[in-house]
Structures are given as C-alpha cells and as structure tokens.
Amino acid sequence: MRSSRVEELITIGALARASGLTTSALRFYADCGLLTPTEVDAATGYRYYTRSQCERAVLIRRLRGIDLSLEAITEVLAADPDRAERLLDAHVAVLERRAKAAARVAAQVKRTLGAGHGTAVPAAELARAIAQVGAAAAVDDSAPVLTGILVEADSTALTLTATDRYRLSTRTVAPLRNGGAWTAVIGAATLASLRPWLDSIEEVVLAPRESGLALTSGDTEHDCAGIGEPFPEYRAVLDGLPTVRTRVLVARAALLDLLETATDESVVCAVDGAGLAVSGAVTATRLPAVITGAPMDLAFRSTVLRPAVASAIGPDLMFDLAAPDQPVVVRSATDGDLTTLVMPTFVPTTEDDR
C-alpha cells in the first residue's frame, strides 16, 4: 500500500482531460523529456502522473500556443522567474516583428489581388474629388439619395457625382488600376469623414459590396453603407442642356482672387470680344479671356459662383454659356475633369427693358 502522504497518481487520460492536451501529445512530451510520467507500469506500460504535473502540462500547452519551441519551453520552465520573463519578452518581440512583416506582405498581395476586384486611385485625388463634388449634395434628408454621392467605375475613370436638383457637380479621377464596371451611392457625409485617412495614405482601392462600398489600403478597410434608392439621371440633365452659344476660357486663380473681394451679393460678368469684365467686387475688373461666340451678360450670386470656381481643378476654367437665364456649365481638368452646373440670375439688357 502507498503511504497517505504520497501524492495521488492519475492516468494519462485524466491528465489529458485536466490539461487540455491530447494523450498523444502527452506521450510526445514524455518521450522528449519535457513532461515525464511519475510512474510507468512495467507490465502494462500504462503511464501515471501526479495531479501537480497538471500545472506544468497547462503551461506547456499555453507556451506551445504562442509558437515557443520545445527547447525554449524547457529553458523557460527551468529558469527563475526573472529569466523566464526575459525569455518570454524576447519571444514576443520576435512574434511582433514577424506579424508586422506578414502584414506588409499581406497588404502587397491584397493590393495585387484587389486589382481585379476593385478600382485603385490616388488617395489624395479621391479626397479632393469628395470635397469638390460633395458640396453639391443635399443636406436635407427628405430625399436620402440626394444626400449621397454616386460613385461609378468603368474601364477609363472613377466618376463621382452629387446633386441637390439645384446644383450638380461631377468629377472624374484617372484610375491606377481598373477593377471593372460598378456603381454605388454613398452618403456624402460618410465619404467626407474618410478624408483625414485618405490624406494619410498614397493609394486606395474601391470595391463594391452588397451593403455599399469598401475602401481599402494595406490592412485597413472602411465599409461604407450604401443608399438603395436610384440616383437621378444626371447625364440626361447634362445632355439636355441648351446649345452652347458662347465659350469662355479664363485663368482660374485670377477669377477666384477677384471673387474673393466681392462685396455685393451678386457679381455681373460681361463677356465680349475684349475679355471677361467682372463687377460687384471691390473694383470692376476685366480679365484676359479667350472668348468664342456671341457677347453675353450674366449675373451670379457670389455665394454660388465662388465655390464653383474655388473647387475647380487645374489652372484654367471653361464656361459654356447658352443664355443669361440658363445653367452655366463650369468645366476644369487635369488628370481628371470636374463639371459643375451654376444657375445665373437673369440680367435684363437695355433692349429687354425696352
């Protein structure tokens, strides 16, 4: 009989259940000397352990779970607490370096794979397009789709469009990689909230989802909920504009500087063979401009014309004029193009007064 002071022995199966290890793993650790049985029956070969060995078995399982080698586990379990802590910290530091390296590789692979599933564009260009187009989105959510930006991709461009039915802006961005044809309508406020992130990265991949749109860069992904209503047929609006009678090409910076000094609620633009005369600012000024077509006088609310000029891209602006009481198409372009409709305030001519 065993003395009552001798610790109770348990079978390998009982130790397996108590420690979370399999019996085959316990045999493996026994054979490599990491967790040897307290007693082995010579006749049957059954292995017996003490209950106190369960704690060591659990430690082995947990250390194997963080990819510690058997040699390193042996060293940790044999070390004093301070040395064991240093050994574990060093191992965790190695794991962190490997995780960061793996994340970099995964990001590169995801970008490569994403070329066939999404449209890649320069992030800074997308951020600017969101700001430029989003100004035309409605704030009142009585018609939710009008608070959104229509995002469209095809083989040549990523196009963003917004309208509140009184204004309309559409902007294209040249893609870095084409991801097929798709569309999504996303809230202008949702996209605007991503601008700080977009400004901090170089490239972003946009891909449609059932729920909306995903924007991905490296290991960061933003899922944007979509708006399920159909977006207005804005191309029909553009195609239905009256025939252009006059076209004006003017330097954007010069016109913007002039509009920034506007003191009146309205500014009057007189287009003739001598250029573009703007009144309503501190002083009436004539800007050099290339004019094609008939002379025309138009008036704009300064709060409407100024944002259209300020949000334009590139050094030059083109105005397509049909009549003093018809929408003016403001166009600009660099690597993409931006088109904005601006409604003038009709200014009667002397002949009209008569």
Rank of each mutant, 00 (worst) to 15 (best):
R252Y: 13
L258K: 08
V271I: 03
A254P: 11
G293T: 04
D264K: 11
L256F: 10
G280N: 09
D272F: 05
V271A: 00
M296P: 07
P295V: 00
T285N: 10
R286H: 04
R286D: 04
A277S: 12
A253N: 14
A294S: 14
A277R: 14
I291P: 08
E260G: 01
V290P: 04
R252M: 07
A294Y: 12
T246S: 10
T263Y: 12
A253P: 12
C269R: 05
A277D: 12
V248K: 03
A299P: 07
A262E: 05
G280E: 09
A284D: 14
G275L: 01
V290N: 08
A254Y: 12
G273P: 07
G275D: 09
A254R: 15
A251F: 10
P288S: 10
R247W: 09
G273H: 14
V248H: 09
T263C: 01
V271S: 01
R245W: 10
A289W: 06
T285W: 12
D264E: 15
G273D: 15
V250F: 06
A294G: 02
A284L: 02
R245H: 12
S266C: 03
L276N: 06
V250I: 01
G280V: 03
D272Y: 07
V250S: 03
T263P: 03
G293Q: 11
G293A: 00
A253C: 05
E265L: 02
L258D: 10
A251N: 15
V278F: 06
A270E: 13
A253S: 14
G280D: 13
T246H: 13
V290G: 01
L249Q: 13
T246N: 07
M296F: 04
L287P: 06
A281N: 11
P295C: 01
L287V: 00
V268N: 08
G275Y: 11
P295A: 00
A253G: 08
V278Q: 13
L255E: 08
L256R: 15
L255I: 00
E260C: 00
I291K: 06
T261D: 13
S266Q: 14
M296E: 04
S279F: 01
R245Q: 13
A299S: 14
V268F: 06
G273T: 11
E260A: 01
T246K: 08
E265D: 15
D257W: 10
T283M: 10
E260Y: 09
A253V: 05
I291D: 03
V282C: 00
E260H: 14
A251E: 12
L259C: 00
T261L: 08
T283I: 01
L259A: 04
A289H: 06
V267G: 02
S279H: 07
A251Y: 09
S266P: 08
L255Y: 07
D264A: 12
I291F: 04
M296Q: 09
V271W: 11
M296V: 00
